[in-house]
Each structure stands twice: as structure tokens, then as C-alpha cells.
Simulated scan of single mutants.
Amino acid sequence: MAKRKRLTAPDPERLAVPQERHAMPISDIPTGIIPTPRRAPIADVAGQASAVAALEKVAAEMQAARSEGRMAIKIALEDIAGNYLSRDRVALDEAEMEVLTASLRSRGQQTPIEVVEIEGGKYGLISGFRRVQALRAMADTGEGPNHALAFVRHPEDASDAYTAMVEENEIRVGLTFFERAHIVRKSVAAGVFSSEGEALKELFASASRAKRSKIKSFMPVVDQLGSVLVYPNAVTERLGLALAARLGTEEGFGSRLRDRLRKAVPKTAEDETELLTKALQGKQPKAPAAKQSQKAAVGSEIGAGKSVEVSFKPGELRLSGPGVTPALAAQIRALLETSEGA
């Protein structure tokens, strides 16, 4: 007969209510025990596509800014061709260059130059000639970087490049009348413009007709004295117009004046100006007689078979027709200025 197992009463401690225990913080659970939630694959693809699109947009904007000349880039000074255009600046003022160099030394280049891409990985200088000269001088002495900040322009033709150069210099430091006439003559000689009239109209589009007329009157000074003047920018408007009048009407005056300038070799701008002034006064009698001779010269010009039409209204006397030549305009202007000074 099988033995029966005796049942024993349960242990009271084991039947007691279990004590409350705190759950383990999620941060303490070892990695891998609880799987981390993941986004759906389509969300990852969408996020990457958005980031790529944003980068492409930024890159496209930077490329557009560069191609449109709105973003300045660094260009090595040795890659900048300063002789790409015939410069309108015929001389650099030492005092102004010292001020510019001091500014570049203390504050760096604040205003970019303007260039155009040319062959051989080089850049032709449009505007900023003085800045480039100052930067090169500083680089040679180790005082500055060997590069310049520049806007890359894309002029449609050479006339646009010349116009940009003239406009930039007119805004920054006004050109002298000699420099204005000089660049007109150079641009026509280079074939950029077909005539002086076209060059004047394009290069100095914002100038008044009277100002363009004065620039044209300076042409004889550039043509006959440009090669011998040491300080051409010191020739004032009044002095230049008086010289133009004599050069256009008095035979041999230009050659005599060139000889005097070559022999004298003026050391300063004041010396050269004094020489030019004395040359003008040399064959001019006193003011009344000068007025008479000028009137005669004007009369002979008008009476040389060229018609001149005269119109008048209060405050304005206008001459027109084929008889109104640059020489005649210069004579009349000199006559009026002499009358004002009498």
C-alpha cells in the first residue's frame, strides 16, 4: 500500500504581502534590452532631400552673386593687369596716395576693385587703380597681403568697361579736365568709340552739355602739350581754356611752348603753372587790347565762310551751325573769362 505524503502548513513569512519596489529608471536599462523607436524610412529620405536642396540653393545663390558681380573675391595682385584699359588717371598725387595707404594699413581694403576676366587666368583692371598701386607697394614691403578684394564684372564691350572706369573715378575723386580730355582721346585712338562726340556722350553721359564742351575744348592742350607737361593735373579749367584758345588760333604757339617746357623742366606744379601763365601773357597786351584782338579773332573765324545761327532769349545766347567750332567756342569762353576778370 502506497505511503501518503503528509501535508505541512505553509510558512507564514512566505505568505506575507510582498513589499513595494520601485521600477528601474529607463536610463539605467542596458542598451538593447528595450528597442529604440525609429522613424519610418520615408522620413529619413525626406530629411536628406531637404538638406541637399537647401545646400544647392545656397550654392546657386553664391554662384549667381559671383557671376553678377555682387560678391567680392580674393585675387592675387600678380594676376591683375593694370594696363587692360588706358587709364584716365594721368598722374597719382603723392599726398593722396599716402592717405590711401595709411587707410589700407589700418583698416584693410574696405572697397573692392572692379575687374574683368581675361585670357590666361588673369583679370583686367576696370576701376581701383590707386588701390591696386597702394596694395602692391604694401605687399612689396611686407605691410599688406598679396591679394585684392574684387568684384568680377562682365561688360558687354570695351565701351562699357571704359564708362565704368570713368564713372567710378568721377564719383570718388573728380577727374581734372585734362584727364577727362585725355581719356576721350585715348578711347577714340583705341577704337573703342568712333568719334570724340560719341566718346564724350558715352563716357560723360551724366555731365551737362557745357561741361562736355569744356572737355572737348581741352583737346588741343592734350594733343600739343600732353607729352611735355610734368604736372598736367595742375592745369586749372581757366588756364586750360586760355591755352586751348591760343593753341587753336596762334600758329607756332604750341611748338614754342613745348620748347620752353622742355628746357625749363619744372620741379613743382607751381613752377609749371607759372611758366604756362607767363607764356600766355607774353604776347598779350593790356586787357582792353587783348579783348579787341580776341574779338577780331572771333570775327575772322565766323567770317571764314562758315555760317553761324544766333538765337537769344533772356539769360541765354545760343550759337549754332557749322561755323561753331571747338576753337571758336574756346575763344569765346576765354573772351568772357577775360571780361569777368577785368
Rank of each mutant, 00 (worst) to 15 (best):
M1T: 08
M1C: 07
K5F: 07
P12Y: 02
L15C: 11
L15A: 12
A16W: 09
V17I: 09
E20T: 13
I34T: 06
R39F: 08
A46P: 05
G47T: 12
Q48L: 15
A51N: 07
K57R: 15
V58T: 12
M62D: 10
M62C: 05
Q63M: 09
G69V: 11
I73A: 12
I73C: 10
L77R: 05
L77D: 02
L77F: 04
E78R: 12
D79E: 15
D79F: 10
A81R: 14
A81C: 14
N83V: 10
Y84K: 08
L85D: 03
S86P: 14
S86I: 14
V90C: 00
A95L: 09
L100F: 07
T101H: 05
R105M: 13
S106Q: 09
R107L: 08
Q109K: 07
E114G: 04
L125T: 08
L125D: 08
I126D: 01
S127A: 15
R130C: 01
Q133G: 02
Q133N: 09
R136L: 12
A137W: 03
A139L: 08
P145D: 01
F151Q: 01
V152A: 04
H154E: 13
A158K: 09
A158P: 12
M165L: 10
N169H: 05
E170A: 04
I171T: 07
R185V: 15
S187I: 14
A189Q: 15
A190E: 15
G197F: 02
A199V: 08
L200Y: 04
L200D: 01
K201W: 00
A207Y: 09
S213Y: 01
K214N: 02
S217C: 10
S217H: 04
P220G: 02
V222F: 05
L225S: 06
S227C: 03
V228M: 03
R238E: 15
L241C: 09
L241K: 06
A245H: 02
G248F: 01
G248D: 00
G248T: 03
T249K: 01
T249W: 00
E251N: 01
G254N: 09
G254V: 11
G254P: 07
L257D: 00
L257H: 01
D259S: 08
K263D: 09
K263C: 04
P266K: 03
K267N: 09
D271H: 05
E272D: 00
E274Q: 10
L276T: 04
L276G: 03
A279W: 03
G282M: 13
K283R: 15
K283H: 13
K283T: 11
Q284S: 08
A287E: 07
Q292L: 13
K313W: 11
L319N: 06
L319C: 08
G321R: 13
G323P: 05
V324Y: 07
R333L: 12
A334S: 10
T338E: 00
A342K: 10
A342Y: 08
